[in-house]
């Protein structure tokens, strides 16, 4: 037996020889060494045995492998493309949700439509050709008009108010005439300040009186113009509408509910809660023709402040019915 380091030099050659990868020269050297070194001969035999054992470990691939892989590739191919069905169903669901939300928040009767598509106040503002940026957002379905001038000067505000009043007041002054024409009710935006005194009813929560608004003068103060931007939304329904429908009871804010009566009939204005329980009856009596207004300051008939939330308002004028809503915050 030769020294370990000397044999070590030949072991790699023996490995190459066993694998059939040794060059003729290296194979010859390995063979000569094995003849002289019995330990390296044993080493070669062990190496051959080991490779035989390992090479016998070959396995056959399962028959179903091809089917399995092709199925996987096919499913992957299907998933990689744009799938129209989920996309379409998502869009449809979104539309349904939006529509449902719209219905919930509006509760709009069907007959209110086109007549308010181009409200006089909007026309008036447009005709004024104001030099400031006036943002007019029309929501035709909701029939709501939001007018917000970005810091207009007092003079500009006066022009806006005057033009708006000119457009609004004729309709308010002669409700029956307005009713005879196209719209079922007159357009009366919340921004029009009520210059006529509103008679207060004995009930603390219920204020109702015939609305006999005289045409306001054009010499309105700039302070009044601030009310324009402060007014959030006017929600108009068939027989009436809810103005200032977002109220904070802690700040003593009140919502206004106005109904238009064409001829003497039974008029009801009732505020409900979400469970359809009566919270407050604002008006329930026969009223002559005219515009009637009630205010609700977020208290029930017992005088207690209600909790925050959405309160549907039921308005009935004769056979016509309308619903609005008031949002109470604290």
């Amino acid at each position: 037996m030769k020294t370990g380091s000397e044999c070590g030099r030949y072991k790699e050659m023996i490995m190459e020889m066993v694998d059939g990868e040794a060059s003729a020269e290296r194979a010859g050297l390995a063979k000569n060494h094995i003849v002289l070194c019995p330990d390296c001969a044993i080493y070669r035999d062990k190496l051959v045995k080991m490779t035989e054992i390992i090479s016998s470990m070959k396995v056959e691939a399962p028959e179903y492998m091809e089917t399995r892989i092709m199925a996987k590739i096919a499913s992957q191919k299907r998933n990689s493309g744009f799938n129209f069905i989920p996309a379409f169903s998502t869009v449809v669901s979104a539309v349904v949700v939006i529509f449902a939300a719209f219905l919930i928040y509006n509760n709009k009767p069907a007959q209110v439509t086109v007549a308010l598509a181009q409200p006089p106040a909007v026309k008036a503002v447009a005709e004024a050709k104001l030099p400031v940026a006036v943002k007019i957002a029309k929501v035709p379905v909701k029939h709501a008009v939001i007018i917000a001038a970005s810091k207009p000067s007092a003079a500009v505000k006066n022009v806006i108010i005057a033009k708006a009043q000119e457009a609004v007041v004729p309709a308010v002054k002669a409700p029956s005439a307005a009713a005879a024409s196209a719209p079922e009710i007159a357009y009366a935006p919340a921004m029009a300040p009520l210059t006529a005194p509103v008679a207060k009813a004995a009930n603390v929560n219920t204020n109702s009186a015939p609305f006999t608004a005289a045409a306001p003068s054009n010499t309105m103060h700039a302070a009044d113009a601030d009310k324009i931007t402060a007014t959030p939304t006017v929600v108009i329904t068939a027989v009436g509408y809810v103005a200032d429908n977002l109220i904070n009871v802690n700040r003593g804010e009140c919502a206004k509910v106005r109904v238009q009566v064409a001829q003497q009939c039974e008029v009801k204005i009732i505020v409900y809660d979400k469970a359809a329980r009566i919270v407050s009856v604002l008006l329930d009596q026969n009223e002559p023709a005219g515009t009637w207004e009630s205010t609700w300051c977020g208290r029930n008939d017992g005088g207690s402040v209600v909790t925050g939330g959405v309160y549907p308002v039921y308005m009935q004028v004769g056979q016509s019915v309308a619903k609005g809503f008031i949002i109470v915050t604290k």
């Binding site: 470990m57 070959k58 396995v59 691939a61 399962p62 492998m65 892989i69 996987k72 992957q76």
Partner: peptide, 27 residues
């Protein structure tokens, strides 16, 4: 498949793992 599965099986020493690996390889 024989080469791929054979290598995977001898390397991973588990039939299920070798099948999964073979599928992953071919995909």
């Amino acid at each position: 498949k024989k080469v791929v599965f054979g290598h995977a099986y001898n390397f991973l020493r588990n039939k299920e793992e070798a099948e999964d690996a073979s599928q992953e390889i071919f995909v």
